[in-house]
Design a binder for these strands. Sequence first.
DNA 1: TGGCCGATATGCT
DNA 2: GCATATCGGCCAA
Length: 187
Amino acid sequence: MPRGFFGNPAVVVARRLVGARLRRHGMEVRVVETEAYAGDLASHFVTRPRTGAMLGSTHGLVYLFRSYGLHTCLNVTTDRSGPGGVLIRAVEPLEGIEAMRVRRGVRRDLDLTNGPAKLYVALGLDWSLHGTPWEEAFEVDLPRSPTAVRAGPRIGIGIGIGADRDLPWRFVDPASRWLSRPAGRWR
DNA sequence: TGGCCGATATGCT
DNA sequence: GCATATCGGCCAA
């Protein structure tokens, strides 16, 4: 991975991470879905100013957040010149699948990692990673050649935030079966 | 100090 | 498709 990669704007990092391989503790996964958050009205930098402050002041660190009291989602902070973060929404399991099956306890391998809180469990992550350098937590291989990526609106962000809701900042590999939701008819 | 609200997952209809 | 579990962060008072 190029040095300083996570210093790029969130949208750039999010798009390039689709197709990337992540390795950790004998497991390997392929990233198939990401979302970018910057200084927009859906970003925790705005909606959770205290805990989201990391998004403004750091890049290349693991940023975790808990939602609905139950679920934890995995992000990396980005952008050396402004607020930014990338949510890893879905990955495809490649290696270490048996360990993921044990942690998740689901019937179908398709359900192991097809959502942000699911992959957090499948990969055996924990809150000690919060705020630590991403490259200490994961070994990253970016795709050598550009992957076919499509972009559409982000998932699950609330109404009432205006046009920022429609920003096409969700990036997917439309061919993957592990998406958290199907790709729309986007470019 | 209380109430509201999530960048969700799951199981049931 | 829909209900709901469950709790920390945030802000109003």
